[in-house]
Design a protein around this nucleic acid. Structure first.
Length: 772
DNA sequence: GAAATGTGTCATGCC
DNA sequence: TGGGCATGACACATT
């Protein structure tokens, strides 16, 4: 999440500045797809909703087991997790909007990427920007890009005031947003102001001189904070007010980007994405074909038997494939994307789907890559030699009974999905448009299978947003509530409560909550009406040892660092699922040094606040053993323990309640943990299924391509054979009167066209009947 | 102040 | 039958 945040922020800022420099107003929110969190959240930090659930999600992941959420080792874990997810992401095809932006900015300088390169189909397969996003060297490139942005941003942060003089108001606003982000990360705007920081240090010095020993931690914390602010550990941003050469770098970066924009300006104005393929084809540098040749595009395979199609279903099929591409198309999918057969409308739509993230920035795409022609040039070179199957030329060539199909497809060029232009392009004049389709039935069957496959895929519709969110969840290292407790506000409030007497606001609130719960419990029959919270009395309880088991219960592995800090005492959530009580006990023991500092009263007050209600009750009832024992001892030992003491009925009742509640509490924790595990497992399963689905769809596309190639071969052979046939007079047969018929034994027969049509119709009915 | 989330507790059912 | 566990539901605290 942080990397996304950083990446988005940096990319958006730089890009918006560039656009604003050329007078284009940018509403950055519109560039965010639904799979990204709101811009505000990305810039200002994740919401609490995200931060709170991270513990469980991470802890419950396979490699997250054993790491306590409050453990400082979690940082290492998060780092490892992030790296792991980056590695895993290598086989994903995800095109966040801003990544496309970065690709654009970095494409042009390489020079004229163009859509006119003859071998771009292959060349771009290895070097196209989209491929870069997921390619093996993606990490390197991305990091380079990120670094570039980061440097620029650092410079912006460092020298923003002088630069902003030349910037527009929007630029300043964006820089302001960045500052706010830094503020959110703990660095105030004044951090950028050297004089202000100096002032702050002076104030700190004064405070230290004042000799506030109780605030030692705060002073050190503030000092450390001030030190840390120089380099933000979270984002890697540097905040120093002066960075040598920073201004030059910024200027260079802006200049470079301006150059890019100048180069792409003509396309940049064309912000509107072409709504259909027809408009795209206009942009394609297509070679004009003579009408005769275009007429030959019609395949004899395209007989009326292939219509009518369910157009809506076809469209849904395409959308499902596009969805797949948007959600999770891995490298091989992108390979398909750019290796698809010429004119493959699937591929065309991959690039042009209005719902894909790429198209959010389509104008930019066009800007730097020379318009949509790039999309076509990405395919195999053959397509460039073909007239892009303009439906308007295709339309009249199709047999009359399929006009409905083509009239609908005419605007979208979808017909090519099932009627490959490549196939059409190889047709010769002799075959002509009126050649029969001897394989019509067979291929129809295949098509029907395709469609049913697509149906299957559509029914499994999945949400790309979820996958990305899931990844973000796994990747996020901002979910530590410890972090939130480090905030200045919590620091100050906890300081106040810890340094004050037992009547401090926080302690009184804790006490009041405890006492209120007593009365509440009393109302439901617990024998705790007369319980008091008098600590002195409790300490005098028979055999009662003030246990530290719940002292600083928020801590875990390093109590000396994390526990017992005053600012942690209001962290309400425990997150100690599955922790053995003994582990909790040993881990929760406060270091002696901490105990030395406070007076007895403070300790008692603190203990009092940390104790659970049942501990309060046990203390009040003078229960002679610890709650841990009550809860965790086996039944036999527990009964033995009870028999050792002379306990009143009320005490026994309380002990049994404590045991019951304690057991139930652990059970509830386990139950919740199991729930979370189940959810995570389900998420993983969904991911796996989505991956399988994407793979199947890719395979289907491959099969379609193979089928198309087979059709082409068959068509070529058909035309060749038919063209060589001569009647007894040595004249070629007319394709309007005769057709070749493939027999079951492999022989080929020349039959009258009428007969062939009848057979074709018969074969058309067969699959329909089978469907019924 | 509302919503989301975490936690403790109770009731209930099952083993 | 009692103990323990699992879980839904609820209340409350916290964010």
């Amino acid at each position: 999440m942080l990397s996304l945040k950083k990446y988005l922020t940096e990319g958006l800022l730089q890009f918006t500045i560039l656009l604003s420099l050329i007078g284009v107003r940018v509403d950055v929110d519109t560039y965010l797809t639904s799979q990204l969190p709101p811009l505000r959240e990305i810039i200002l930090g994740p919401s609490s909703a995200y931060t709170q659930t991270q513990f469980h999600n991470l802890r419950n992941t396979l490699d997250g087991y054993g790491i306590h959420p409050k453990s400082i080792d979690l940082d290492n874990y998060f780092t490892a997790r992030r790296l792991l997810s980056q590695v895993r992401a290598l086989d994903r095809f995800q095109v966040p909007t801003t990544e496309v932006n970065a690709w654009l900015v970095h494409r042009d300088p390489e020079g004229s990427v163009s859509g006119s390169q003859p071998s771009s189909g292959l060349a771009l397969e290895s070097s196209s920007g989209l491929q870069d996003v997921t390619g093996p060297d993606n990490g390197v490139r991305e990091s380079e890009t990120e670094q570039g942005f980061s440097e620029d941003l650092e410079d912006l942060g460092a020298v923003a005031p002088p630069v902003s003089g030349d910037l527009t108001k929007e630029d300043i606003d964006l820089i302001d947003i960045l500052w706010r982000q830094d503020i959110d990360l703990g660095a105030g705007r004044e951090v950028f102001d050297y004089s202000h920081r100096q002032k702050e240090q002076d104030v700190d010095k004064e405070l230290r001189d004042g000799g506030e020993q109780a605030d030692t931690w705060a002073g050190e914390g503030a000092e450390a904070l001030a030190r840390d602010l120089l380099v933000d550990g979270e984002t890697g941003e540097s905040f120093p007010a002066q960075v040598p050469g920073g201004e030059d770098q910024t200027a260079l970066s802006l200049e470079e980007c301006l150059r890019l924009l100048e180069a792409t300006c003509p396309f940049g104005e064309n912000a509107e994405f072409p709504a259909n393929v027809a408009s795209i084809t206009e942009a394609v540098p297509s070679e004009s074909e003579p009408p005769a040749l275009q007429n030959s595009l019609l395949s004899p395979l395209l007989t009326g038997t292939e219509s009518p199609f369910d157009l809506e279903q076809q469209w849904q099929d395409l959308m499902s494939i596009m969805e797949m591409q948007a959600m999770e198309v891995n490298t091989s999918a992108s390979e398909i994307l750019y290796n698809a057969p010429p004119g493959d409308p699937l591929s065309t739509n991959y690039s042009l789907a209005p719902n894909t993230p790429i198209n959010q920035n389509v104008s930019l795409h066009q800007a730097s890559l020379g318009g949509c022609s790039q999309d076509f040039s990405l395919f195999s070179p053959e397509v460039e030699n073909l007239p892009v199957a303009n439906s308007s030329t295709l339309l009249p060539l199709v047999p009359s009974n399929s006009t409905s199909l083509n009239s609908t497809f005419s605007s979208t060029n979808l017909a090519g999905l099932f009627f490959p232009p490549q196939l059409n392009g190889t047709a010769n004049d002799t075959a002509g448009p009126e050649l029969p389709d001897p394989l019509g039935g067979l291929l129809d069957e295949a098509m029907l299978d395709e469609i049913s496959l697509m149906d299957l895929a559509i029914e499994e519709g999945f949400n790309p947003v979820e996958a990305s969110q899931l990844e973000e969840e796994f990747d996020s290292d901002s979910g530590l509530s410890l972090d939130s407790s480090h905030s200045p506000s919590s620091l100050s409030s906890s300081e106040g409560s810890s340094s004050s007497s037992s009547s401090s606001s926080s302690s009184s609130s804790a006490s009041s909550s405890a006492s209120s719960s007593f009365s509440e419990e009393g109302a439901v029959g617990y024998s705790s009406d007369s319980e008091t919270l008098d600590l002195e009395e409790a300490e005098g309880a028979v055999g009662y040892q003030p246990e530290y088991s719940k002292f600083c219960r928020m801590s875990y592995q390093d109590p000396s660092q994390l526990s017992c800090l005053p600012y942690l005492e209001h962290v309400g959530h425990n997150h100690t699922y599955n922790m053995a009580p003994s582990a909790l006990d040993s881990a929760d023991l406060p270091p002696p040094s901490t105990l030395k500092k406070g007076s007895k009263e403070k300790q008692a007050d603190f203990l009092d606040k940390q104790m659970s209600r049942d501990e309060h009750r046990a203390r009040a009832m003078k229960i002679p053993f610890t709650n841990d024992k009550i809860i965790n001892l086996p039944v036999e030992e527990f009964n033995e323990l009870l028999s050792k003491y002379q306990l009143s009925e009320a005490q026994l009742s309380l002990i049994r309640d404590i045991r019951r509640r304690g057991k139930n509490k652990m059970a509830a924790q386990n139950c919740r943990k199991r729930k979370l595990d189940t959810i995570l497992n389900l998420e993983r399963d969904v991911e796996d299924l989505q991956r399988d689905k994407a793979r199947l769809l890719r395979e289907k596309v491959e099969f379609l391509r193979s089928l198309r190639q087979m059709k082409q071969k068959v068509q070529s052979l058909y035309q060749e054979v038919f063209g060589r046939l001569r009647d007894e007079n040595g004249r070629p047969y007319s394709p309007s009167q005769y057709a070749l018929q493939y027999a079951g034994d492999g022989s080929v027969l020349l039959i009258p066209r009428t007969m062939a049509d009848q057979q074709a119709r018969r074969q058309e009915r067969k699959p329909k009947d089978r469907r019924k």
